[in-house]
């Protein structure tokens, strides 16, 4: 029942997105704007681009992901839809997993659209041998962010100051995976010391496991007021 429910909620979110294109359009536009602003603000040459490029990429993912999170939960707030989902037989766990998968999908699609533009604007060459490490960093980073963001997004979805509160609460918690992502992205671009990447990979994977163990458990308990 849980797997079926996860699929139903995920399919519903994707179907609505295919019709409205609200989440992906706003995320992608916002991401492009951030990159353009950073690219002009720093007047990047190749050396500086290597230094600040990974940071720009991850700040963009973080901000665009937060925007996607708002939209994902706004749909559930209208007409008490979230209450309806939480009352279904599969319960809050299925809602949590479906929302995490939804956010991971939306951020990944945004990255696929925006990353080539980002790399071109920032002017950082990504060597072919660096792509697997970069992809792994993105996977672990986006998963970690989504696990935490959906927990607090669900908890704070009905509060008046959610747009302010969600980043204040989520960003400090996901800082370890974001720093890991920045360092791994740098390593993928040929920056950093040899062997350093393994440590950052372990750190990111470790935090993802902690989030995976704690966030669903907390979500199922706090969604009943």
């Amino acid at each position: 029942m849980t797997a079926k429910t996860i699929w139903l909620i995920l399919r519903k979110d994707v179907l609505i997105e295919l019709r409205t294109r609200e989440v992906l359009t706003s995320m992608a536009l916002f991401a492009v704007l951030i990159v353009v602003v950073f690219a002009f603000a720093f007047s990047l040459d190749e050396t500086r681009a290597k230094l600040v490029g990974p940071g720009i990429i991850w700040v963009t993912i973080l901000f665009a992901g937060t925007l996607g999170l708002y939209r994902l939960f706004d749909r559930e707030r209208d007409h008490a839809a979230m209450s309806g989902l939480l009352l279904a037989p599969a319960g809050p766990l299925a809602v949590y997993i479906a929302k995490v998968l939804g956010l991971v999908i939306f951020i990944t699609v945004t990255e696929i659209i925006v990353l080539p533009l980002m790399l071109a604007f920032i002017g950082v060459p990504l060597p072919l041998e660096g792509i697997p490490l970069f992809a792994l960093a993105l996977l672990l980073g986006v998963l970690g962010f989504s696990l935490v963001a959906v927990l607090f997004g669900g908890m704070l979805a009905s509060t008046r100051l959610r747009e302010v509160l969600i980043p204040i609460v989520v960003y400090p918690v996901v800082v370890p995976v974001i720093i890991g992502g920045v360092k791994l992205t740098g390593a993928a671009m040929g920056d950093g010391l040899p062997g350093e990447a393994d440590n950052w990979l372990r750190l990111m994977a470790g935090f993802d496991i902690i989030y995976l163990a704690l966030c669903p458990w907390v979500f199922t308990r706090v969604m009943v007021e």
Partner: peptide, 25 residues
């Protein structure tokens, strides 16, 4: 059945009913 209708505005009436029904197995 809560005071607010449990409905997704971007789905049709039929799709909304199918979704709720499927969620309840």
């Amino acid at each position: 059945m809560l005071h607010q209708p449990y409905v997704y505005p971007d789905l049709s009436g039929a799709e909304n009913l199918e979704l709720v029904s499927a969620l309840y197995g």
